[in-house]
Design a protein around this nucleic acid. Structure first.
Length: 502
RNA sequence: GGACGUGUGGCCGAGUGGCUAGGCAGUGGUCUGCAAAACCAUCUACGGCGGUUCAAGUCCGUCCACGUCCUCCA
C-alpha cells in the first residue's frame, strides 16, 4: 500500500505521487511572529513534521519550506486605516519591529524544538523577499489581472474570473462573495479604493506613520497579505510543487488567493496536493488569537495558566495531538491531556523494556498464531500511516505491542512464541514509528549521571530485597514509599525489581 | 444569510456497509508479604426520526444541536 493523502482541492484521498519521483517540495504556512506560540500552533507543525519525517523515511528527498511572516498582515483594513500587526506591537512595547520579530521567532523556534519538530529546510522571511513580491505583482499587472489605485495594487478578481475559476479550493462562488447577505462589512470595504470589495491587496500604500515600509514602483508601501507565500514557494520550490499545508482557517481566503496569484502570474496551478489540518478547540470553540482563548506553549510546559491543572510536557502535547487524526478537531481539556500523558508514559515504558529485551534466538516461532499476529501488526502500522497519516491508528498498534512487551517482560507470555525474525521486526517497527516517524522522545529524567544513579538505585533495591527476604516489611516499605515521594517508582516483577523516574 | 464540516460508551478519540480500534477512568480476576506495576476478563456507543439493503455507527432524506470559514488567525 502506498501513501494516500487527502487533497483539499479534490476533497478526496489521493495516491501521493511526487511531481519528480524521489523528490518532494513541501510548503507550510508558518507563524506570524507577533506573539507567543500557543497550542493551536503546535497542531500544523507537528502534523507536517510527521509527514516530513515519513516522506524521508520513504527515502524521498524533501525540501520543506516554512515561512516566517514578519510583515504584511493588516490589523484593521476595513476601516481603511490598516496597521501592520508587527508595527503595532512594536509601538506598544517600544521595540524595533525587527526586535519583536526576532523575539517571537526565537520563542517559536524554541517551542518547536521542544516539541521535537524538525526544522524546515528553508525558513524564509517575508521581509527578505520584498523584491520578489514586487516582481510578482508586476507580472500579475502585466497580465492585466491587477490594478493600481493611489499607490496600492489590488488583485482584480472579476477580470481573473473571466479566464480562471476563482474559488476552486474553498468551493466559494464569486457571486456568493459579492451578494454575501448579512455581511455589512462588505459595505465598509466598498468605501476603499477597490473596484470590487472582493478584490484583495497585493501592495498597500503606507501611511506616513507606518513603520514597516519599502519603496516600490507604486510608491512607499508594504506587500499584501497573501503574496509572500506565493512568492517564496515559487522561489524555493518552483512554479508548481507537491504539497502545500496549513491550518484549515487559512483555506479561505489565504490559500485561495495564493492559487489565484500564482495562476495570474505564471498561468500554472501552483500546488498538486493541498493539505489542511483542523483546529484545536477549547470548550468546543477554536483556540485562537481572535477569540483570545489561547493558552501558550510556555504556559503548558510550566502549568502556568488558570485553566491548567498541572504542567504538560512537550511530548505529552505531541502525543495528545497525534492521538487524533489531523483533519479532525481535537478538544483540549485537562482530563484529555492527563490521559494522553499516561498513555505516552505507557509507551515510553514499553520502549525502555523493548530496547533491553533479548530474544532466545529460536528461528521458529513456538506459537505460529502469535507470531503471525505480530507480523500483521507491523504491516498494519504502515497501512495506517499510509492512510492519510492516521497517527491515531498507528498509536493503537504501538499500544498492542506494548501489552505484548510487558507480558514478555513479566513472563506472562513466553517471548519464544515469536521467532527471532518476528521479534526483531516488531522491535524495529516500534522504534521506527515511535521515534523516527511520530517523533516521540523519551523525556523521562535521563539527566546525564545515569551511572551513579543506577548504582544508588541498585543498592537500594538490593537492601530492600534483603529486607523483604527477612520479612522486614517496615524497612522495605520505607524504601519504597520514600522513593515514591522522590517520584521514583519501584516495580516488582518476576525477574526482580526495576525502577522508573516519573 | 452563504459555503463546508461535526455529533461515537464516564472522558478523549479511531473507524465509512457485515470483522475487538486504542488510550484514560471503572469493575472482576491473576501475580504480590501488602501495594504499585503488569497481564487477563469485563461494563458503558454510535444526536432524533424516516428510508435504502439480506445487513447501517457507516449510504440517502429530514429534523435538532454544535463548530469552522465568509475579517487577522495554525
Amino acid at each position: 500500500m502506498e501513501l494516500k493523502i487527502h487533497n483539499s482541492l479534490s476533497k478526496k484521498k489521493e495516491l501521493f505521487e511526487p511531481i519528480t519521483p524521489g523528490y518532494v517540495g513541501m510548503y507550510v504556512c508558518g507563524p506570524t511572529v507577533y506573539g507567543e506560540p500557543h497550542l493551536g500552533h503546535a497542531r500544523p507543525y507537528i502534523t507536517f513534521d510527521v509527514l516530513y519525517r515519513y516522506l524521508e523515511h520513504l527515502d524521498m528527498k524533501v525540501r520543506y519550506v516554512r515561512n516566517i511572516t514578519d510583515v504584511g498582515h493588516l490589523e484593521d483594513e476595513l476601516a481603511g486605516e490598516g496597521e501592520d500587526k508587527i508595527a503595532k506591537k512594536a509601538r506598544l512595547e517600544k521595540l524595533e519591529p525587527m526586535e519583536v520579530v526576532q523575539t517571537y521567532t526565537n520563542s517559536f523556534h524554541d517551542k518547536m524544538d521542544r516539541l521535537n519538530t524538525k526544522r524546515p529546510s528553508i525558513e524564509p522571511r517575508a521581509s527578505g523577499h520584498i523584491i520578489e513580491q514586487i516582481d510578482m505583482i508586476e507580472k500579475i499587472m502585466a497580465n492585466g489581472l491587477a490594478y493600481e489605485v493611489n499607490g496600492s495594487v489590488y488583485f482584480d478578481i472579476h477580470e481573473y474570473s473571466k479566464s480562471h475559476k476563482y474559488g476552486e479550493l474553498s468551493g466559494r462562488i464569486l457571486e456568493d462573495l459579492v451578494a454575501g447577505a448579512g455581511n455589512e462589512r462588505r459595505e465598509l470595504a466598498a468605501q476603499s479604493d477597490k473596484k470590487n470589495p472582493e478584490d484583495f491587496a497585493l501592495w498597500k500604500n503606507a501611511q506616513p506613520e507606518h513603520i514597516m515600509r519599502w519603496p516600490s514602483p507604486w510608491g512607499v508601501g508594504f506587500p499584501g497579505w497573501h503574496l509572500e507565500c506565493s512568492v517564496m514557494s515559487e522561489k524555493y520550490l518552483g512554479k508548481t510543487f507537491d504539497i502545500h499545508g496549513g491550518g484549515m482557517d487559512l483555506l479561505f481566503p489565504h490559500h485561495e488567493c495564493e492559487i489565484a496569484q500564482a495562476k495570474a502570474a505564471t498561468g500554472i496551478n501552483p500546488v498538486k496536493y493541498w493539505m489542511h489540518n483542523n483546529m484545536i478547540t477549547i470548550n468546543g470553540k477554536k483556540m485562537g488569537k481572535s477569540l483570545g482563548n489561547f493558552i501558550t506553549l510556555t504556559e503548558f510546559f510550566a502549568g502556568s495558566h488558570d485553566f491548567l491543572e498541572q504542567a504538560y510536557s512537550p511530548m505529552c502535547i505531541r502525543f495528545f495531538i497525534l492521538q487524533a487524526h489531523y483533519r479532525s478537531t481535537v478538544d483540549f481539556s485537562n482530563e484529555a491531556l492527563i490521559a494522553a500523558e499516561k498513555g505516552y508514559k505507557r509507551l515510553i515504558n514499553a520502549k525502555g523494556i523493548l530496547s533491553k529485551m533479548e530474544h532466545p534466538g529460536n528461528e521458529v516461532a513456538k506459537d505460529a498464531a502469535a507470531d503471525e499476529a505480530i507480523q500483521k501488526l507491523c504491516v498494519r502500522a504502515y497501512d495506517h500511516i499510509n492512510d492519510d497519516l492516521n497517527t491515531a491508528q498507528v498509536l493503537a498498534e504501538l499500544f498492542e505491542v506494548s501489552s505484548k512487551v510487558n507480558a514478555y517482560q513479566n513472563k506472562q507470555l513466553d517471548i519464544a512464541e515469536l521467532s527471532k525474525a518476528t521479534f526483531d521486526k516488531m522491535k524495529q517497527t516500534f522504534f521506527t514509528f515511535f521515534t523516527d516517524i511520530l517523533g516521540l522522545l523519551d523525556e523521562s529524567g535521563s539527566t546525564g549521571d545515569d551511572g551513579s544513579m543506577d548504582g544508588v538505585m541498585n543498592l537500594l533495591i538490593d537492601i530492600r530485597k534483603t529486607a523483604r527476604e527477612n520479612k522486614d516489611f517496615a524497612t522495605s516499605d520505607k524504601i519504597r514509599d520514600s522513593l515514591n515521594e522522590l517520584e521514583i517508582q519501584l516495580k516488582d516483577g518476576k525477574e526482580g525489581t526495576t525502577w522508573v523516574k516519573n
